[in-house]
C-alpha cells in the first residue's frame, strides 16, 4: 500500500522532470537546426520560475478554475499510464478512462479561454476542437486495433502481453505508423501548431494568460508531451523498465522533432483533411486486419 502512495507522489514529479527536459531539448535541437546555439536545456524551468513571480490579470473565477482543472486533469492522466515498472493507478482505470481523461485538459483551457472574452482565444479554441476532431479518428482506430488484438482494454495487460514475445509494433505496424503521423497534431507542434499560431491569432488560447496562468499552461504542456509519448511507447513498443522506457521515449520524441522542424504550418481545413486521409486509412486497414485475425 505504501509503495502505491509513494509512486502516486513520485510519478508526477518524474513526468514533470522528463517533460521539462523534452521541452528544453526541443528548443535546443530546433535552434541547432537553425544554425544557432539556442537556450540552455533548463530554460523552461527558468521561464516557469519567472512566470510564477510575475503578476497577471484575471477575467473572473472561471478564468482561474479552468487553468487549474486542465493541469489537474493532466496530472491525473499521468498516474494512469504505466511508466516502466511504476503503474500506480493503472488498476483502477483502463484505456477507456485514459481516452476520456485526455478530454479534461483541453476542456479546462477552453472554459477559461472563453471567459477571457477575446476573439483570438475563441478562434484558437474552435481550431483546437476541430484539430482534435481531426486527429481523433486515426487515434481511435489505432487504439481499437490494439484493444481488439490483445482482447483487453487494460493498458497493464497490453504491456504484459508485449513483454513475453515481440512488441506490438511488429504485429500492428499500420496503427503504429498512423499514431506516429498524428503525434505532432496531438502535441500541437509545428505542422499542426494552428492552435497557438502567434503570427495569425496572436498565440491562440494563451492571449490573455499572464504570469502564473502561463506557468501552469507550460507545466501542462510538459505533462502532455510526457503522456502522449508514454502512451505510444506503452501501446506499441512494450515499455520495459525505467531506463529502456526513457530511451524509447527519447527516440520517439527526437524523430517527431526532426519532422516538425522542416514543415510550415497547415491551415485548419488542410490539417483536418490530412488527418482524415492518410493516417485514418492506415489505422482503419490495421483495425480490419486485427479484427479478422
Amino acid at each position: 500500500m505504501i509503495i502505491k502512495v509513494i509512486s502516486i507522489i513520485v510519478l508526477p514529479l518524474i513526468a514533470l522532470i522528463i517533460g521539462f527536459f523534452f521541452l528544453g531539448l526541443s528548443r535546443k535541437v530546433i535552434a541547432r537546426i537553425h544554425r544557432r546555439y539556442g537556450p540552455p536545456i533548463s530554460q523552461p524551468l527558468i521561464d516557469v520560475i519567472k512566470l510564477i513571480n510575475q503578476e497577471s490579470i484575471s477575467h473572473g473565477k472561471l478564468f482561474d478554475m479552468g487553468v487549474i482543472l486542465s493541469l489537474a486533469g493532466s496530472v491525473i492522466l499521468v498516474l494512469f499510464i504505466p511508466f516502466g515498472g511504476i503503474a500506480p493507478l493503472a488498476t483502477s482505470g483502463d484505456l477507456l478512462v485514459i481516452i476520456y481523461l485526455m478530454l479534461l485538459a483541453p476542456l479546462g483551457v477552453a472554459l477559461s479561454g472563453g471567459e477571457a472574452a477575446n476573439p483570438n482565444v475563441s478562434i484558437g479554441i474552435s481550431r483546437k476542437m476541430m484539430l482534435a476532431l481531426g486527429y481523433e479518428v486515426p487515434f481511435l482506430f489505432s487504439l481499437l486495433a490494439v484493444m481488439t488484438w490483445y482482447k483487453t482494454t487494460s493498458l497493464v495487460e497490453v504491456v504484459k502481453a508485449q513483454q513475453s514475445f515481440l512488441w506490438a509494433i511488429f504485429y500492428l505496424p499500420l496503427p503504429a505508423v498512423a499514431y506516429f503521423m498524428i503525434l505532432p497534431a496531438m502535441l500541437g507542434i509545428r505542422p499542426f501548431d494552428i492552435v497557438s499560431a502567434p503570427q495569425e491569432i496572436a498565440s491562440g488560447t494563451a492571449v490573455e494568460y499572464g504570469g502564473r496562468y502561463l506557468a501552469l499552461t507550460t507545466i501542462q504542456h510538459a505533462f502532455h508531451i510526457f503522456i502522449d509519448i508514454a502512451l505510444f511507447v506503452n501501446l506499441f513498443l512494450g515499455g520495459g523498465n525505467l531506463l529502456t522506457f526513457f530511451v524509447k521515449m527519447l527516440v520517439v520524441f527526437l524523430l517527431g522533432l526532426f519532422i516538425n522542424a522542416v514543415f510550415p504550418r497547415l491551415r485548419i481545413d488542410q490539417a483536418i483533411k490530412y488527418c482524415w486521409k492518410w493516417p485514418a486509412i492506415l489505422a482503419l486497414v490495421g483495425l480490419i486486419i486485427a479484427r479478422i485475425i
Binding site: 530546433i30 537546426i33 537553425h34 544554425r35 499560431a197 503570427q199 514543415f263 510550415p264
Partner: peptide, 16 residues
C-alpha cells in the same frame, strides 16, 4: 514570408 507561414528554419537561414 517564411515566418508568416510558421516556417522558422528557412527564416533563420535567410536572415543569416
Amino acid at each position: 514570408y517564411a515566418n508568416m507561414l510558421g516556417f522558422d528554419t528557412v527564416a533563420q537561414w535567410a536572415m543569416y
